[in-house]
Design a binder for these strands. Structure first.
Length: 642
RNA sequence: GCCAAUGUAGCUCAGCUGGCCAGAGCAGCUGAUUUGUAAUCAGCCGGUCGGGGGUUCGAAUCCCUCCAUUGGCUCCA
């Protein structure tokens, strides 16, 4: 007999070799029908794999992330089986579960899969799923594995097997399909009741651009049809919040092929929104001791040779431009730091000058591959809310705290709660690839970790993700479709001070090397505004809204009164407009609602007589009658909350 | 850049396997209506069917090519 410990710490005894599925069945038939996988001793496993020794057990269902993952992983096999059936001779790369579903990389030879094939792939999958195919786990020797896929002619699996140790190789068989796989899997395919193939894309084998491009097919499955429908509705809702769509609807920005792809044109309303964000940050930075600087959009190639960026990124940048007579070469600036370094060293610096915080909304240009461009989130010309802090090594921590404060202030003002804080540190086994002294790195990494800990934020630590020049902390936010984008960043840099030979005179009257901190709380204005649009669905907080108030006269008779109100609001620096169109009030309200104008003031006979306004809030409805001063006070309060 | 797809009026879209002068709604303009909390009515204007080339008696529709966009891959100082 063995002891099985359940999550609630109860312990029950079973025969050795009992399977989690049998245990589930012993608890209730309903549970047995819903359980997808089991966590045994912290390892997620097949439900049908016997438990031989006493262990802790967690039965995983659709409500557990691991349950979903098992379902989707098995679904990837099911899809591969369908593909093999429909496209005989297809070869397979990898087919993992992902955050929302799964994919499989497939080599179809010269055949192609397009969206037209999705329906029959789905049908075939469902047909196979209904056969209740069991997933059978089998341990195989490396030889046997190689022979099997050798006979099949699947060079991708052979390559994967080559990297595995003999004795740790397992196959899973389900229906007509056998795959190299670690598992775990569902007991059988009957759990898969709803299937959707989502998209098809090219993906390089092992992510290597030099290797063959395979067809990557994305899909998702559910235990119930209803859940698939809900997922599709959610997807549709998310698409409505797409910043490209809202940006167009609200006339915030546009693109023109004439200007060039990836080069956004900010329309007046969008430009106002962006300026307001910039002003907000400028004010915060001024209070935090930043000094504004302004530098040109281009820089001599020699500058980037000095910084090292030319050697590293020159080939992937916009080509340099030349002067007509002298043939001097200039690059569109891909970042602001070299310019700022030059500002640092235009005169000798003393430790008394540090920390020196130079800030600039600097527009930079980077060549991004055409297929990579995406709305405002990935562009070729964008403006960073950049600043470089030059400080002594022992000021790093304090400066880091100061920057964190600014980032948090912004996130709070904009009600961003759902962000990921990622700390990128050195790869401990590969220290030679980093520049800077061991002592400084250690100090900076410790400082970042301490700051993160004190902040109370949930942080993810990634070893090996640090830049070669220093550790960093990034803030990631998801867009409407769940894709992660990096917004703010704080990076410690030991490299540029070295390359630019930056110095300061210490209290010991000796020369010392300063440390640089690159930081951009928004990241780029373009990307930040894009994410902001998707988070708010275009319903910006009052202080940011391009138009804050619209006055809606019930008929033309009350236009004069409306204009009076407009003047009063204008004098109070409230951004207002009057809808003077010859339309019914219902229509004016509808249009204002659609334009996401935060407040509507309806004025008619009653309001004119009583010298009031009837207030309606966007998305909420009628708030009743206000004296005009009371309304202004209300608005002012709302704005000063940030 | 690569794989797959898309591109019809300012916007959203219809136009099936090629065949009467290319349609609708919204927006815009004009007029009527003078309006009370999410679309008043009528008329008008508006399109080299992304650009170019080809097949055909005939192309928005089929083929080639270029451009742009979308979903991924790769990259991101």
């Amino acid at each position: 007999m063995i002891n099985i410990t359940f999550p609630d710490q109860t312990i029950r005894q079973y025969e050795a070799g009992v399977t989690p599925l049998e245990i589930a069945r012993g608890i209730s038939e309903g549970l047995a029908r819903n359980v997808l996988a089991a966590e045994v001793h912290g390892e997620v496993r097949d439900l049908t794999r016997p438990i031989k020794t006493s262990a802790s057990l967690r039965l995983l269902t659709w409500d557990d992330p691991e349950g979903k993952a098992t379902m989707w992983h098995s679904s990837a096999h099911l899809m591969a089986e369908a593909i093999e059936h429909l496209f005989p001779g297809a070869k397979f790369g990898i087919g993992p579960d992902i955050e929302n579903g799964f994919y499989y990389d497939i080599d179809l030879g010269d055949r192609v899969i397009s969206e037209d094939d999705f329906a029959r792939i789905e049908q075939t999958m469902l047909q196979f799923a209904r056969e209740n195919q069991h997933f059978n786990r089998r341990e195989v020797s490396k030889d046997e594995a190689l022979r099997f896929f050798g006979a099949k002619g699947d060079e991708y699996k052979l390559e994967l097997i080559e990297d595995l140790q003999d004795g740790e190789i397992t196959f899973y068989e389900s229906g007509r399909f056998t795959d190299l796989c670690r598992g775990p899997h569902l007991p059988d395919t009957s759990f898969i009741r709803a299937v959707k193939i989502l998209s098809v894309a090219g993906a390089y084998w092992r992510g290597d651009i030099k290797r063959k491009q395979l067809t990557r097919l994305y899909g998702i499955t559910f235990p119930k049809k209803k859940e698939l429908d809900e997922f599709l509705v959610q997807l549709e809702e998310a698409r409505k919040r797409d910043h490209r769509r809202i940006g167009k609807d609200l006339e915030l920005f546009t693109f023109s092929p004439q200007v060039g792809q990836g080069l956004p044109l900010w329309l007046p309303r969008g430009a106002q929104l962006r300026e307001r964000l910039e002003q907000f940050l400028k004010k915060v930075q001024k209070e935090a001791g930043y000094l504004p600087v302004i530098t040109p959009h281009i820089g001599n190639v020699e500058l980037y040779k000095l910084s090292g960026h030319y050697q590293k990124y020159g080939q992937d940048s916009f080509r340099p431009i030349s002067t007509p007579i002298e043939g001097e070469q200039f690059m569109l600036k891909p970042m602001n730091c070299p310019h700022h370094c030059e500002i640092y060293r235009y005169k000798p610096r003393s430790y008394r000058d540090l920390p020196l915080r130079l800030a600039e909304f600097g527009t930079v240009y980077r060549y991004e591959q055409s297929g990579e461009l995406h709305g405002l989130t990935r562009v070729r010309g964008f403006t960073q809310d950049d600043a470089h802090i030059f400080c002594t090594p022992d000021q790093v921590k304090e400066e880091f705290i100061g920057v964190m404060d600014i980032v948090m202030k912004i996130f709070k003002a904009l009600d961003f709660k759902d962000f990921i804080t990622q700390i990128s540190l050195r790869d401990k086994n590969n220290r030679e690839k980093y520049i800077g002294t061991e002592e400084n790195w250690e100090r900076a990494e410790q400082a970042i970790l301490e700051v993160a800990k004190d902040s109370g934020l949930n942080t993810v630590i990634e070893y090996g993700e640090a830049a070669f020049y220093g550790p960093k902390m990034d803030f990631l936010v998801r867009d409407a479709l769940g894709r992660k984008w990096q917004l703010g960043t704080i990076q410690v840099d030991y490299n540029l001070p070295e390359r630019f030979d930056l110095e300061y005179t210490g209290s010991d009257n000796e020369k010392h090397r300063p440390v640089m901190i690159h930081r951009a709380p928004f990241g780029s204005m373009e990307r930040f505004v894009a994410v902001l649009i998707e988070h708010t669905a275009g319903k910006f907080p009052l202080w940011l809204a391009p138009d804050q108030v619209i006055i809606l006269p019930v008929s033309e008779k009350f236009e004069k009164y409306a204009l009076n109100i407009f003047k009063v609001l204008n004098n109070s620096e409230i951004r207002a407009l009057v809808d003077e169109r010859n339309e019914k009030i219902g229509r004016k309200i509808r249009d204002a609602e659609m334009n996401r104008i935060p407040y509507m003031l309806i004025v008619g006979e009653k309001e004119e007589r009583e010298n009031t306004v009837s207030v309606r809030k966007q998305g909420e409805g009628d708030l009743g009658s206000y004296a005009i001063n009371a309304f202004i006070e209300k608005i002012d309060n709302e704005i000063s909350e940030i």
